[in-house]
Design a protein around this nucleic acid. Sequence first.
DNA 1: CGTTATCTGATATAATATAACACCTCAAGA
DNA 2: TCTTGAGGTGTTATATTATATCAGATAACG
Lengths: 158, 158
Amino acid sequence: MPNEGFHRHDHSTCVETALASAEARCAEERLRLTPVRRRILEILLEEHRALGAYDILDRLRAEGMAAQPPVAYRALEFLVGNGFAHRIERRSAYIACTEQDPDHAPMFLICRSCDSIAESSIKRTDLAREAKHAGFVIEHQVLEAEGLCPACTDTAAP
Amino acid sequence: MPNEGFHRHDHSTCVETALASAEARCAEERLRLTPVRRRILEILLEEHRALGAYDILDRLRAEGMAAQPPVAYRALEFLVGNGFAHRIERRSAYIACTEQDPDHAPMFLICRSCDSIAESSIKRTDLAREAKHAGFVIEHQVLEAEGLCPACTDTAAP
DNA sequence: CGTTATCTGATATAATATAACACCTCAAGA
DNA sequence: TCTTGAGGTGTTATATTATATCAGATAACG
């Protein structure tokens, strides 16, 4: 299914699967998925929504782990840098990655009413074409759309 | 010219033209382009790059205007809300708008080397099509691409 | 002219993010 | 085996970005 962000699904297995595949890729590419990094990815996967760095720190603190801001920011830098998570700029928040396709750039659909976020995607070339007109070489794309998700279109304030 | 962000141009006239057209539109739509708002728009136009709210406050302070954070944030809210400026999420910064076409969403090309920013654009429908698959209604789009501008492609670090 | 909405000025504080340094650990090379 | 260096963690302190709130001013409009 290309986009399950706004749909129910079996959550415990999806967390396990994603964690396992992250572990596999780290082993393959000699990346160190240390305990803090792994736990933070797991938290993001469990929540299945965007969390602020300080939300994550609260969780870590509750579990007795080290919880100074750099702990979260460093782990998030690793996770985002390696494609295991994304930063949602509009929210200054972080969310686990649910699709990894090198040909597509992630696109996020953020509901202003219920704050749910779905990860969609767009062909990388679609934006690259625009950039090319300006002689610009894209290294990182931010595609975020804010609006109303299917569940909120009827009920939310205008 | 569709995109002059990475090119030289006559700057004093472009500031004047943009200000005049902002004034015209405000008169037309009963929007209040007050002195602070006008001055901040002018600063953004003069700089022709993205400024942080506190950069703007420094400028205001130097000119003897009120310069508490809310002064800038309120004016920026007005300017962004009415399309006279944009917020660059990747930089937590603000830039004057250089194109206004209701059919197109602004797209920003941010050079990671020299930090220049060009405003390009993309058909609104291009992203809306993706969103529609998810039953999502877009109200606001953020399209930002980070990379290297033409002037930096050769010289910048990899 | 009076009323109401909008805007400004100011203080305080919240939320987000980074700098810097000591220490640890583990693998690669001498 | 030693040692050395890169990358990771823990911690303190601080920087940067943004908002809540309330009192007073000004404009819009009947």
